[in-house]
Design a protein around this nucleic acid. Structure first.
Lengths: 166, 166
DNA sequence: ACACTACCTATGAAAATCATAGTGTCAAGT
DNA sequence: ACTTGACACTATGATTTTCATAGGTAGTGT
């Protein structure tokens, strides 16, 4: 972590949370896990962090119980990183970060990075934390994600660039 | 910022948001502003950050349009820091951080730091991002905050300790 | 034997952060 | 006039983190 001791000694839940995830890379790693990237190299390629940064963050995320390592291949031993229940519970934060980013950090000509459909009502969910069509709060299980072509291309390009450099 | 350039060059709204507020002190400063602390010293006392950290973060928050300086006293010139509309719009993120912290970073014997009443329904709002009584999404304007005695005492103690050292 | 994949570690330079102390500007008290 | 005190920072040097770059291990495929 990035200096958790002082912040953890408080009743404030925001400070406690920040003591665990108050770091750009940590949040980006969680985003990647939520997006379905579970391998070290995928995380590295899509976040742009150095291997040590990722290794260190994954270690603390595991220690803090947000992430678990799963063996997907013995010989050679290979791991995937998956969200635990505690990690999954972090989703509303990412949703709120996304909402703010889409609303306040984009020029009008840039589209939404990921389009969500709200399963219960079958309509677009919009960029807020509640469904713009039916008004219900958005839960992860109810969302069908569809990345925009531009965003998909960006991620693809990142992966190619990473493989090229390696 | 803590290195905004690489993260800002993406369509991902989460990464863009993190480029602005991806830093523990920044989030803690915003929390303090939302809690009603508007003076430099209040922020310093309640966050525990050093003056440079706060000065630097406030400067970038102002440059990014989340915070505005207001003169509350000429001779000697004194400023207060207030959230802009863009800063106020960040509230759902803090609410989500709070929810996660209350749910996953507390032992059972620790109470909730701030008790919210949901004005529209008059009932307790709980610790989630939707009202536990009526199910509606929580908006800042609808919440009446009541800090717990313990949390109030903690903040009071921090202020006293700060004044003592100064 | 040789290349290749996946997952990290190692190293040294650069940058951020920290604790601690100090400065500037004014008002108010004595 | 002179000290005290409030507020909002700024300065400094040590410590810690982060970064870029490179290397390394344990295997598979050819």
């Amino acid at each position: 972590m990035t200096g958790k001791s002082p912040a953890a000694e408080t009743l404030c839940p925001v400070a406690r949370t920040e003591a665990v995830v108050g770091d750009r890379w940590t949040v980006l790693i969680l985003r990647e896990l939520f997006m379905g990237g579970h391998r070290f190299e995928e995380i590295q390629a899509q976040t742009g962090a150095t291997p040590q940064m990722i290794a260190a963050r994954l270690k603390t995320l595991e220690a803090d119980g947000l992430v678990e390592r799963r063996v997907y291949n013995k010989r050679p031993l290979r791991h995937e990183y998956h969200l635990t229940e505690k990690g999954e519970a972090f989703h509303p934060v990412l949703l709120a970060l996304r909402a703010w980013g889409e609303m306040w950090c984009k020029s009008p000509d840039e589209g939404v990075a990921v389009h969500y459909t709200h399963r219960p009502c079958g309509q677009p969910a919009g960029v807020g934390t509640v469904c713009e069509s039916c008004g219900h709060p958005l839960r992860r299980a109810d969302l069908v994600a569809e990345p925009s072509p531009a965003y998909r291309a960006e991620r693809e390009a990142r992966w190619e660039a990473f493989k090229g450099v390696r």
